[in-house]
Structures are given as structure tokens and as C-alpha cells.
Nucleic acid binder design. Structure first.
Lengths: 198, 198
DNA sequence: ACCTGTCGCGGAGGCAGCCTCCGTTTCACT
DNA sequence: AGTGAAACGGAGGCTGCCTCCGCGACAGGT
């Protein structure tokens, strides 16, 4: 009732404004202080009270998922590009790198992502994007296997874990880029087929 | 002065008692709740006030390092056993597995360990054991390389990172043992020399 | 333009954990 | 037993989490 042609309940102006301000403030704080940053500080910077923050985003994960939305879409765009590559081996490598960058968006991001990957209860708002990444990785792995570029024993989930691990290591700040490159190379030579099969 | 034959300042009985009680309580809590457990709860269980805990162990890391002391010694014992193996390839594999188990002693242990690996300031009491592990890994890697079982491009630090990563993944609880085994296999086939060199 | 019901706002407040400071107690040595 | 020094421990200040509810602002109708 009381609709002008739009479906669903009318959205109040302050609701939209607050939500946008919260997302922007959250992104800034996640970037600067990592995903563990104080939510009260986020609320304050957004110019709203803590109650408002928690009404919009009941959990830290919900806020995080909303902030990640943009990045997820960017990643899916890259996925489309990568799919055009043709070369299954290169495609897999690029996809893994793209995922790793996604995981490195904020320091401390790998932890909640792994928690979401574990969760069977669909309560966690990060579970959906997480499962999407795993599924996509499986597709790339399968293609690489068919082309003889990846071992049969490797699964998409394995390489998802590897990418998360590298991102985690990166996030600890205990390594320089050289070490990370060697780690990536280690993973790659780990999943690659050794000989060309007959 | 005023010594009965022991060197150094005399240790009061309550000091020793409290320290022992704290270490025991801390180990229990770290085992049950991970390294992030409430230090106040540890103090309470040990039957001392928070002030006493913080006097004995000024930081969480200091307490952790003290609790890990026993495990470090066990690991060094295994190191001695492993060194007897003769086969450099097997030795490296066993050592990596032993390190991984050490890292998995408590949930959440990898984080402070990586922070200690990063730290240049010697303030962190975990830095010393951490550096020891890295150095030891480098020895095993060098031996394996000389025997033609490991690629020249791999460093001890890389495999240290790999072991920490696997332990971290394990600690998230998002994976079963099968996945972990596949990850370990991935790492191993990543550092192994492909062909036997001439 | 005003009225009105509803929904969102926001801050006070309860809770938990961290860490410190200092009056009190306990110990060891004489 | 007496005494000085060192350790004890808990109160308290601080920060962050999250909830609850009275107040206020917004949208739709008149």
C-alpha cells in the first residue's frame, strides 16, 4: 500500500544517507586499521550513533560484506576478462592472483573469510561470496586439468586455500614482495603437471 | 651477598609457586580457548590477581613464550632425531611436519609468531625461538638442495612460511585432514626438484 | 501547509577485557 | 622475633561491544 509504482517499502532519505555514510567511513577505517577496527569509531566518523550502525549492519561481517560488494563486482569483472584468455594455464594463474589481491583488500580479511568458508549456517553474509570464489576456482582448475596443465589431484578448494594463505602471509607484513613471489611460485609449481601427458 | 651457595638473588617461595600456577593455568586456557583467551581468567584460575600476572609476564607474548618453552624443547629433541635420518629429503619433510605441529599447539598461535618473525626490535620474546626455527629450516633446505632433492630457488624462510600457513589454515577449522594433506603435498611438490639432476 | 502515525535515530548504560598503581601482606635474612 | 624489601592483588580507569528505549524526523494524507 501507498506505493507510487516502486515495489517494496519506501526508503526514507535519512536511511539511505546514513547507510552510505557508514559504508564510506567503514571502508576508510578498514583500509587504515584493518577489519578489526573499532565499530564505534566508524559510527562516529559517519556521524551516527552506534545503534544506527548496528541496525544497518547487525554484525561486523555484515558491514564487511557490504563494503566488499564493490570489490566483489570488480573481481567478477576480472573473471570475465580472464575467461577470454584462452590459455587455461595462464587463466588459472591470473585468477589466483586476482583472488589473492581481493583477499588483501584489508588487513585481517582472511580470518573472517575462512570463518565464512567453514560456516554451514547461512547466517554469515560472507559465505555467499566465499562460495562463489571457490566454485569459480574449481572451474578454472578443471579447465587447466583438461588442458593437461594441472595435476588431477589438485582441487579448486586447495588453490583457494593457497591464495588465502598467501594473502594472510602478506597481511602479517612479515615478508617482502620477493618472498611472496617465491611463495606463489612454490604453489604454482606444486599444482602444475610435471610432464606433458601422452 | 647473603647467598647460601646459589648464585643470583634468592627466589621467594611465593614467586615460584605463582609462576608455576600461572604457567599451568595459561597452558590450559590456551589449549581450550586459543592464544587470545582472557588473561584475567588465567589469573583467576591460577588463584592470583591480575597485577601478579602482569608482573611475571608483562605481555601476552611473554606468557606465551614461557608456555611454549616446553614445546620448543620437544621440537629441538625431534630435530636431533630427524638429523639422524640421513635421507635429506625425508629429513626436510619430517622437519616441516614437526614445525607445523608446533605451530598448531594452540589455536591462534601463527599470528603472534608471524608478528615476532617481522619484529626487528628484540622486545618480542617470541622472536628468538622463531628465528631459531627459520635458521634450522634453512639448514635442512640446504642439505636437501645439496642432495638434489630441493630446488635451488627455494629458501628456508619460504618453507617456514609455508608451514606457518598450513598451521594457520588448520587453526581456522575450515578444512578436514584430507584438504590439509593435499596442501602439504602441494607444498612438497612445489619445492621438490623435478628431475634428478645429472 | 499542516497533521499524524510510524520508523529510524542515537546515546546512555551494562558488560567484558586490558593494564596500572599503590596500600597491604608475605617472605627471607638476621 | 624484628625488619626491610619485594611481591601481592584488587580497585579503578580505559576502550570497545552491543542493547534498549525515549525522542525526533520523515513521508503520506488531508
Amino acid at each position: 500500500m501507498s506505493v507510487k509504482g516502486q515495489r517494496g517499502p519506501r526508503l526514507r532519505a535519512d536511511v539511505q544517507r546514513n547507510r552510505a555514510a557508514l559504508l564510506e567511513a567503514a571502508q576508510r577505517h578498514f583500509l587504515r586499521f584493518g577489519v578489526g577496527t573499532s565499530l564505534e569509531a566508524v559510527a562516529k566518523e559517519a556521524g551516527v550513533g552506534p545503534g544506527t550502525l548496528y541496525r544497518h549492519f547487525p554484525t561486523r561481517e555484515a558491514l564487511l560484506a557490504a563494503v566488499l560488494q564493490t570489490r566483489s563486482e570488480e573481481l567478477m569483472a576480472r573473471r570475465a576478462e580472464i575467461a577470454q584468455l584462452g590459455d587455461a594455464s595462464r587463466a588459472l594463474r591470473h585468477w589466483l592472483r586476482a583472488m589473492e589481491e581481493y583477499f588483501s583488500a584489508f588487513s585481517g580479511l582472511p580470518e573472517p573469510l575462512m570463518a565464512a568458508a567453514r560456516a554451514q549456517e547461512p547466517g554469515n553474509p560472507l559465505t555467499l561470496p566465499c562460495d562463489l570464489l571457490i566454485t569459480t576456482t574449481e572451474e578454472y582448475v578443471r579447465a587447466a586439468q583438461l588442458a593437461g596443465h594441472a595435476r588431477a589431484s589438485v582441487t579448486g578448494y586447495d588453490l583457494f586455500l593457497a591464495a588465502v594463505s598467501v594473502a594472510w602471509i602478506k597481511g602479517t607484513g612479515a615478508t617482502d614482495e620477493e618472498s611472496l613471489d617465491r611463495l606463489r611460485a612454490l604453489v604454482e609449481s606444486g599444482y602444475r603437471e610435471r610432464e606433458n601427458p601422452a
